[in-house]
Nucleic acid binder design. Sequence first.
DNA 1: AAAGTCTTCAACCGCCGGCGA
DNA 2: CTCGCCGGCGGTTGAAGACTT
Length: 338
Amino acid sequence: MGRSPCCEKKNGLKKGPWTPEEDQKLIDYINKHGYGNWRTLPKNAGLQRCGKSCRLRWTNYLRPDIKRGRFSFEEEETIIQLHSIMGNKWSAIAARLPGRTDNEIKNYWNTHIRKRLLKMGIDPVTHTPRLDLLDISSILSSSIYNSTYHHHHQQMNMSRLMMGDGHQQPLVNPEILKLATSLFSNQNHPNNTHDNQTEVNQYQTGYNMIGNQELQSWLPIMDQFAEFQDLMPMKTTVQDSLPSFPSNHEDDYSKSNSVLEPYYSDFASVLTTPSSSPTPLNSSSTTYINSSTCSTEDEKESYYSNNVMSTSEIADYSFDVNGFLQFQETKNHWDRVM
DNA sequence: AAAGTCTTCAACCGCCGGCGA
DNA sequence: CTCGCCGGCGGTTGAAGACTT
C-alpha cells in the first residue's frame, strides 16, 4: 500500500525555492516552539508548505549550526576517507563533519570530489586506481606507433625508454611496452579483444618474448606509476592484486593458441576495475592523500596544481625519468611534512 | 552581444525502517 | 501480525548562474 504524497498539488501547497519571508516564518516558529511534529508545523507556522519541505529547509539550510562556505582541505580529506569505507552513506559521513549536511556533502562529492578522483585515475566507487581512466593507451600508443605525434618531448622520452639514448640501456624492454600498449589500448575496447585472433597472437608473441619473470619485474613500474600519478599510496597495489602466472608459460602456450587470453583478462581486470562495482565498501583500498598540511585555499589549489597532475601533465612526465625522480622528491617532501 | 552548453546545488521524490495503535 | 504515520535517507532533477563559442 503506497503512501500518498506528502504535499499534493490539490492542497495548494507551494513547491520550489523558499522565499526570505517563508524562511523567516519557519525560523521564528521553530525558535519559539521547536519543530515538534513536522507534518503539523507548516499549518501552525502559517506556511503553505508540506512538513517534509519544511524539515528539509530547516535541516539543510536554516539550522543555526550549519557551517556555510567552501569545504576545508581537512573536510575534503575526511569525506574521501569515510567514503572509501562507507560508500554513499552521506548521513553517516555528515555525522563526522560538524555543521555539514548530508545533502551538502553529497552535492560536493558529485560535483567536485568525484570528478577530481576520476581525473586522477581513481575509481570514485571503489577508490582503486583505474589506469584506463588516465587514458594511458593514448600516451603509449601515440608515442610508439604515431611517428608524426607532435609532442616531441614525450616522444623523445618514449624512444629513450624503448631504445636507450646511445649511452644507456633501454629503460624498459620494448616488448613489454608493446604488450602494455596492446593491453591498455584493447582494454578500452573489450568487445574487440577476445574474438580477434591477430591480437591474441600479438599477446602470445609478446608474452613469449618477455617471459613471466620480466613481466613480473615490470609490474612494480606500474605500481610506481599508479602511485606517482597522484601521490596516493595504495594499500592494494597492482602487483599484490596480480594473479599468479605460470612458471613455465611455454608449456601452456603449446596447448592452446588462446592461452594468453585468461592471463590478459586477469591482468586487464587488475588494471581496470568495473565502474559499476556493487560493493563500494572496501576497507582494504582506503585512499590516502598525503597533503594534510595544506590548510588555506591557496595552499590547497597550489597543492593540486603542483602535485596532483592532470592527464596531460602526466603525459609530460610519465616516462621521463628525471621528471619522475624530481616528482618523487616532491612526494617525499610532502610525506615528511605530513 | 547573443546563443548555446555546462555546472552547481537547493529541493523534490520515492522508498525504507521504526514505532505505536 | 498488519497498518498507517513519521522521520530520515539517497538518488535525481531542473532552474539559475557561469562559462564558452
